[in-house]
């Protein structure tokens, strides 16, 4: 296949997986709408069971609302199946993107590609952890999130396949970015749990509808903590180990207070405060969830916001193909010439 063919394949795969995610979202919405009026009672386990595909539980409760139960189970399974398919197509889009470049590379060269990868990790993480933590209730939120972010990605962030700028040709691209993407995915899933925690905590007495079927606040809190406890060391690795090593090689300083570095540091500090608060001050629940969401806000601001608000960032790959080398040459000597012009001047 030619590079152009790979690129077309990638673009088509993104469109297809977007549509399939959307169908999965609708399917999950139907599932949860069906349960809207049904009080949580004998079928309290139903959503989990649906997710895990255990029809036996459904049969127990079919006496109450056979229609609703069947529909719920059907659409729940359908939604999960569609999510699996969409995630697979999503992977095809990523691979196609990497193959379309010349030379072939990991598809993390610009914001479009990074967002494509980030959403993939969120979706894959949800699928992998679905069984272990019983995350079926999370389905509509995760799928909805992925659909929205993918849409933003395609509409505003799209960039055609282009060769990487020189500084990006490094094995650290793979290590640094993959760890950042994984941590971003884990923090995002943890953040979703925290949002639900806050919402659920405000209306604890609900017996019908979606909220009533979300796990107890304590369980949400625990899942959220686990996600963050996993994400934080990975983030540390990405931001404070691989980042500086690469920066030292490419930009000659391992830490230069580049805006993106600053915000990655801020995110790190906020999540450190979150873990610290949980470990020592015994913060659980509300305050911890707020901190986690603050961390998530800084994380996503750093990822997308800073590229638009700051033009000085050396991470601004949002700008059209920055050639690090050319750019560095423009600025530094000019300022140097103003202050220390003598050696060259006379």
């Amino acid at each position: 296949m030619t590079d152009a063919a790979w690129e077309t394949l990638s673009n088509q795969a993104v469109a297809v997986c977007g549509v399939v995610y959307f169908l999965a979202l609708i399917s999950h919405l139907v599932q949860w709408t069906a349960l809207r009026k049904l009080p949580v009672g004998a079928e309290a386990q139903a959503p989990v069971a649906v997710g895990a595909g255990a029809p036996s539980v459904v049969e127990d409760t079919s006496a109450h609302e056979p229609d609703v139960e069947r529909r719920t189970a059907l659409f729940g399974r359908l939604g999960l199946l569609l999510t699996v398919i969409a995630t697979a197509v999503h992977l095809v889009a990523l691979v196609g993107r990497g193959m379309a470049a010349d030379p072939n590379r990991v598809p993390w060269g610009n914001m479009y590609e990074f967002t494509l990868s980030g959403t993939f990790v969120v979706s894959l993480g949800y699928l992998l952890l679905n069984r272990r933590f019983g995350l079926a209730w999370m389905a509509p939120i995760v799928v909805g999130f992925v659909v929205v972010v993918l849409m933003v990605d395609v509409v505003w962030l799209y960039d055609p396949v282009a060769p990487l700028s020189e500084a990006l040709y490094s094995p650290w691209l793979v290590i640094h970015v993959v760890s950042a993407v994984i941590a971003t995915g884990a923090f995002t899933l943890g953040g979703i749990c925290s949002v639900l925690y806050l919402v659920k905590e405000r209306r604890p007495a609900r017996t019908t509808g979606y909220l009533a079927r979300v796990p107890e606040p304590a369980a949400l809190d625990r899942i959220s903590y686990r996600m963050h406890a996993f994400g934080f060391p990975v983030w540390t690795f990405a931001v404070l180990i691989t980042g500086p090593i690469w920066a030292h090689q490419a930009w000659s300083a391992y830490w230069s207070w580049d805006p993106k570095e600053v915000w990655a540091f801020i995110t790190w500090v906020v999540y450190a405060a979150y873990l610290h608060a949980r470990a020592t001050a015994g913060w659980k629940g509300r305050n911890a969830a707020m901190l986690a969401l603050l961390g998530l806000a800084t994380l996503w601001f750093n990822f997308i916001g800073i590229n638009f608000f700051s033009t000085t960032s050396q991470h601004s790959y949002a700008a059209p193909a920055v050639v690090e080398v050319g750019q560095a040459g423009v600025e530094t000597p000019a300022s140097a010439g103003g202050e220390l012009g003598q050696p060259l001047g006379r």
Partner: peptide, 8 residues
């Protein structure tokens, strides 16, 4: 350490 960071 010696780095190449610009040209013209």
């Amino acid at each position: 350490d010696i780095f190449l960071i610009g040209h013209g």
